[in-house]
Amino acid sequence: MSPVRNIGRRLARRRASGSGILQPLAVGWLVVLWILLWGRVTPGLLVTGLLVAVIAIALFPLPRLDVEGRVRPLPALLFGVRFAWDVVRASVEVATLAFRRDQEAPTAVIGVPLVTRSDLMLTLVSEVLSLVPGSLVVEIDRHDAIVYLHLIGVRDREQVERERRRARETEARMIRAFGSPTDRRALEARP
């Protein structure tokens, strides 16, 4: 974790990221957003939307990102359903905890090493982990791809380990749904 190695790695990342698909995608999304906010579609709105989008992207260019994953319909559906269910369960769980009498129950902070080496996937996994039961991301170590989770409602070490497994399974589902080939291979290689 020396600074020199860090910089070298960052440079390598920059060189590796070739796909410039993000900028046009962002422009497209901004135009759609513009139309939705106006609430109707006219040629004039399309033109102004495009103009605003291009100016916004030119002024605030997005960092380049590797987008090499491909969405697989069935695993993606599986992930979507499980995610929706998890969000509901998480909400009910935390809501119940709010009414519990003893507010001095233990919590925990654990580090979960992830398989992925992609910034995009790391971001998405962290977002999802914050929304599903038990966990909240307190820190992300991008260099080693470790997310640190705060756990609530854990009574003992066993439950802590269960949460750790659950976080890893969540990542696995996401990689299967839309991970890059590299991540997929890394996932298979994981013991």
Partner: peptide
């Protein structure tokens, strides 16, 4: 209240 604190 922390059972484990791996970040710490």
């Amino acid at each position: 209240l922390l059972l484990v604190d791996e970040l710490g």
